[in-house]
Amino acid sequence: MMCALMAAGCGTSAPASAPGLRRVVGTDLIGARGATPSDQRKIDRTAVGLCSGGVWTSQECAKHGQEVE
């Protein structure tokens, strides 16, 4: 799923650099399954990087953390 998110956020061109993308996205998501509070924190930290790096729009960032009905 992360690959799909990155492709949607970055378009069809490659990122300027892998280290730059790594700084934006981080490595917290590796191994997280969303099953524990610790996993959720990892997901949240990744979302913060995507929002602050401008990969997601402000509207998309506002949706993070909202409960799904």
Rank of each mutant, 00 (worst) to 15 (best):
M2Y: 12
M2P: 00
C3Y: 10
A4K: 15
L5D: 11
M6H: 13
A7Q: 14
A7V: 14
A7L: 14
A8L: 15
G9W: 06
G9I: 09
C10G: 11
C10S: 11
G11Y: 10
G11S: 01
G11P: 06
G11D: 03
S13L: 12
S13M: 10
S13P: 00
A14H: 04
A14K: 08
P15G: 03
A16T: 12
A16Y: 03
A16Q: 05
A16C: 06
A18H: 00
G20E: 15
G20H: 00
G20L: 12
L21Q: 01
L21W: 01
R22L: 11
R22V: 07
R23G: 08
V24S: 00
V24H: 00
V25F: 02
V25Y: 05
G26A: 05
T27S: 13
D28N: 11
L29R: 00
L29N: 00
L29V: 13
L29Y: 13
I30N: 09
I30H: 11
I30W: 09
G31W: 07
G31M: 03
A32T: 02
A32N: 00
R33H: 10
R33I: 00
G34R: 07
A35T: 08
T36F: 01
T36V: 04
T36G: 05
P37W: 08
D39F: 04
Q40I: 13
Q40N: 12
R41M: 08
R41K: 11
K42T: 01
I43M: 14
D44F: 12
D44W: 12
D44K: 14
T46V: 11
T46N: 08
T46M: 15
G49D: 04
G49A: 01
G49W: 04
G49C: 09
L50F: 04
L50E: 03
C51L: 12
G53A: 03
G54Y: 02
G54M: 05
G54L: 02
V55N: 00
V55H: 03
V55K: 01
W56N: 03
T57W: 00
T57V: 01
T57M: 03
S58F: 06
S58W: 10
S58D: 14
Q59F: 07
Q59L: 04
E60M: 07
C61L: 07
C61N: 04
A62R: 02
K63E: 15
K63W: 12
K63V: 14
H64Y: 11
G65V: 04
G65N: 06
Q66L: 12
Q66H: 09
Q66D: 07
E67V: 10
V68K: 13
V68Y: 14
E69M: 07
E69S: 11
